[in-house]
Structures are given as structure tokens and as C-alpha cells.
């Protein structure tokens, strides 16, 4: 048997003799790492961080109010047009505390509503603010520190102008365990044609052996209501600061006597720091 080397040498010999083939070797040229001037690069920004999130978030430049829903009335404007309107009571809403970005990572105004003198805890908080203890406590995020209303100041209903738009956030009326027709507006099954004891049911919930399971997020019967909900862009019809009454056009979430959070309309007056800088 012939070895591989002998074969290759023989092939080379024949190649040389026929094509005059010559092979040359070159030295590898690599620039020294010290010859390159160094340059500092900026660290990567993590978009999913508190700081950048704060800059992106669409916020208002002033806090809002806590109110109590008192009921609905008929409202007539000067042209004789008739609207359903909701009456909201604004009862001793005062600024309790400021939260600054250095300390908490975001800027907000802590606001309390409705004086409460029995069974109160956290009395020191109210002592520092110089206000009476409150029944309802909550925060309003503001865009910058210019929006921090001084601690102890009373916020009145007339901080909202008549004709402006507000957003109202509340907790909807709880409906308990509701069927699929009430909860998701399904049409139910037929009244006749052999349907038996299943007139308000959903029907089928999925496929066959494939996929062999009910897909996640399938609309079914369950707890309905009792969730947070925001009604956006409601017009202010009447704002009486001294009497503490605010009337808005339309209906708002929740039952009577429930607390609601009222702010300027985010869609109209809300801006992020990023968008302001861009403009």
C-alpha cells in the first residue's frame, strides 16, 4: 500500500512539473493593542428602570382630590339641554406629606380627606402636617417638584374650573359571582330547539382532543365588579369650593358614599418629562 505522504509528494511533483506551482509564506501582521487610542463608552441605559420609567410616565403637574360620591341629579344648561350629572362631596381635603424623588424614587403628594378623630393610628404623620387625622389617605403622583402643594394646604373643589375635563377613579359596584351573560355579554343558548336547562350558559369552551385543554383567558362566569375603574374626560359642570360640592357630567364608578379619586384629565393635560424635553 502507498502512504498518503508519498501520494501527495508525487502529486506535487507532477503539479510542479506541469504548472510550475510555487508556494510562498507571509508573516501575520497584527497591530499592537497599545497602538489603539482608548475611548470611554457610555454605560448601557436600562429602559426598564424606575428612573427612566419616571421620565416616560404621562403625569399631571398638580395633585387632584378625593371626593365622596353622593348621587346623581338632572342638570340643565342655559340652552335648556338636560344632562345626567353626578354630585361629589369634597370634604376637608388637605395635603399631608410630600414624597420626593431623592427619598422615594418618585414625586408625589400625599393627600387626606374627611376628618376622623376616633380610632386613628399614624397620628405622628398628621401632627407633622399640622392637620386633623384623616379617614382617607392617598397619593397623587406629579411630574416634578413644582407641583408639590405645600403641606397642610386645603384643596378645594374649585381647583377644577367649570368646563374642564377630569378623570374619576373609583371601585365599581360588586356584582358577586355572575354568569357569562351578565359578565361578558354573551347571548346564551336558544330558548327552544331542544336546549335543556342551559339557556344562560356559554356553550362550548374550547376544541377537541387538540388542544385538549381550555385556552387561558377564556371568558367564563366568575366574580364581577368590585374592581378599580377610571372614567375619563368628564366635564365639570359646577364647582363650589366653600360648600365642597363638585358636579360632573355623566356617571362615575362605584356606589353612593364611596370614595373617588378626581384628577385633571390625563389625556388632555398629562405630559411626560421626555415629551416636554422633546418639544
Amino acid at each position: 500500500m502507498l502512504s498518503f505522504n508519498s501520494v501527495s509528494s508525487r502529486v506535487l511533483q507532477t503539479l510542479n512539473s506541469t504548472f510550475n506551482f510555487t508556494a510562498t509564506r507571509h508573516a501575520c501582521k497584527i497591530t499592537s493593542i497599545h497602538a489603539i487610542t482608548s475611548m470611554k463608552t457610555q454605560p448601557n441605559q436600562v429602559n426598564h428602570s424606575v428612573e427612566l420609567g419616571n421620565r416616560r410616565k404621562c403625569l399631571l403637574d398638580r395633585p387632584g382630590l378625593f371626593g365622596i360620591k353622593r348621587g346623581m341629579i338632572t342638570w340643565f344648561n342655559d340652552n335648556g339641554r338636560q344632562f345626567p350629572a353626578t354630585v361629589i362631596e369634597i370634604d376637608s381635603v388637605e395635603v399631608i406629606k410630600h414624597k420626593t424623588e431623592q427619598e422615594f424614587g418618585y414625586t408625589s403628594v400625599m393627600v387626606g380627606a374627611v376628618d376622623k378623630l376616633k380610632n386613628v393610628n399614624n397620628l405622628k404623620l398628621f401632627e407633622q402636617a399640622g392637620v386633623s387625622p384623616k379617614h382617607k389617605l392617598g397619593e397623587f403622583r406629579v411630574r416634578s417638584e413644582t407641583g408639590l402643594v405645600p403641606v397642610g394646604a386645603e384643596l378645594k373643589a374649585d381647583m377644577f374650573a367649570v368646563g374642564q375635563m377630569v378623570d374619576i377613579k373609583g371601585i365599581t359596584k360588586g356584582k358577586g359571582f355572575a354568569g357569562v351573560m351578565k359578565r361578558h355579554g354573551f347571548k346564551g343558548l336558544a330558548a327552544t330547539h331542544g336546549v335543556s336547562k342551559a339557556h344562560r350558559k356559554q356553550g362550548a369552551t374550547g376544541g377537541n382532543q387538540d388542544p385538549g385543554r381550555v385556552l387561558p383567558g377564556k371568558k367564563m362566569a366568575g366574580r364581577m365588579g368590585g374592581r378599580s375603574s377610571t372614567e375619563m374626560n368628564l366635564e365639570v359642570l359646577h364647582a363650589d369650593g366653600d360648600a365642597g360640592i363638585l358636579v360632573v357630567k355623566g356617571c362615575i364608578p362605584g356606589p353612593n358614599k364611596a370614595y373617588v379619586k378626581i384628577t385633571d384629565s390625563v389625556k388632555l393635560y398629562g405630559k411626560s418629562i421626555e415629551s416636554i424635553e422633546r418639544d
Binding site: V87, S92, E94, F126, G130, S132, E154, H238, G244
Partner: peptide, 26 residues
């Protein structure tokens, strides 16, 4: 020492029901 508790703000509308007060005005 116990923290001082500040007095509540004076009652609005002399404590009248907000709905009744507004209704009278309207």
C-alpha cells in the same frame, strides 16, 4: 408624650347634606 391632634376644619354647609344643599341652590 402623646402626639398633638389638631382640630378638624369647620363643617361645610353647616353640616347640611350635600345633595339637599345643592338642590336648594338649583
Amino acid at each position: 408624650a402623646k402626639p398633638t391632634v389638631f382640630e378638624p376644619l369647620p363643617k361645610k354647609r353647616n353640616g347640611e347634606n350635600a345633595m339637599a344643599y345643592l338642590h336648594k341652590q338649583l
